[in-house]
Design a protein around this nucleic acid. Structure first.
Lengths: 191, 191
DNA sequence: TGTTCCATGTAATAAGTTACATGATTTA
DNA sequence: TAAATCATGTAACTTATTACATGGAACA
């Protein structure tokens, strides 16, 4: 019961499934992702339930677009989801599970390369988010606290995104140093 | 393809499904969770694939325990999972999706109460993690950098857990202030 | 002529949740 | 005697992933 509500939230103005996928890639990526093969059936289901309605729109190239809009019933369900309080305790962070079991890798070099790959990923992600912020700031003098409501709340998610990715990056750095320091200690101890 | 590998990782020494669930609740909670109704069938499946083997053990009360152990083949698959590099880009953070759409709640008081609930959750979670760290530190002089490998790598996940939850808590605080400052501005502007 | 983008979907499978079912022992 | 803990599981359902299928337009 989550993609369902996220789609309801995204349909503030009428758009197609394809557009929604693009918005996922641009803005929601750092806390949610969804494939088109999940989006399309979910939109259909929401329409049969009366939370969305759709119409056919023309497109410049390719097949006609199906444009969805949120109904009053759909808006009510969105509000109910938000009013029910924050959905917590559902986070899954695969790479932390891997770190937890990393000793099984045995080879120190492989462990370090795992953490380096993670660090590179975080560094790249941070760059992306910083670029998003830079553009936003450059193009809207109201950034961040005088933005209209809709943008203000998405800016809040960008702010925590930046902080967390930065924290992850620093942690990778520290972890690498700690791992290296340990291996030095072990090899020099029985001298 | 994830609970599968996490179970393989946890089966460093022979335990039952029930024990695994307890370890989830104690240590892995902040990056993964699993229900018994998912654990039991998954263990069975891993056994039919030859990655685990099982035997019947006695229990003090209740039905007999089924004790699983990792086979060589199981260990090989665990290593392959780790060697394949960090699994990134799969994170889902439901409450951030909600914040992104929070303006739909309309009422400022409800928005603030949402953020307060989130803040309370983070504060409690932080306390728990700090308590885990305090106990660990008090009971093992090797904490954190001289711990044996297995504990060292799980300590790394505790370290990032603490940092992230702290960051979340600070963000809730800042967000609440920013939201309140906005509402003051709006109501005093057309004076 | 091949690749990317536009735009829609279905089918098969995997992963995860919620509810149900059983039954003994211990603790309040 | 009621509730909690131990310990196993199945069934029904929901959610998400991967692979497949179609076909036109723009671009290199």
């Amino acid at each position: 019961m989550s993609l369902r509500h996220i789609l309801l939230g995204m349909l503030n103005e009428p758009v197609s499934g394809y557009d929604l996928k693009k918005e996922f890639n641009q803005s929601l990526q750092h806390f949610w992702r969804a494939e088109l093969s999940q989006i399309y059936p979910q939109l259909q289901k929401l329409e049969t339930e009366g939370l969305l309605s759709s119409s056919t729109g023309e497109s410049l190239k390719g097949p006609p677009r199906r444009i969805y809009r949120r109904t009053a019933k759909g808006h009510a369900e969105l509000i109910a989801w938000l009013a029910d309080g924050p959905k917590v305790g559902e986070e899954r962070i695969g790479y932390l599970a891997q770190v937890y079991f990393l000793e099984n890798l045995g080879d120190q070099a492989q462990i370090i390369s795992f953490m380096q790959e993670l660090r590179a990923y975080m560094a790249n992600w941070l760059k992306q988010l910083q670029e998003v912020e830079r553009c936003w700031q450059a193009n809207d003098p109201r950034y961040p606290d005088d933005l209209p409501d809709k943008e203000f709340y998405s800016q809040l998610t960008l702010a925590i995104g930046l902080t967390k990715v930065q924290a992850n990056l620093a942690w990778c750095e520290t972890a690498l140093n700690r791992i290296r320091a340990r291996s030095n200690k072990v090899s020099s101890a029985p001298a």
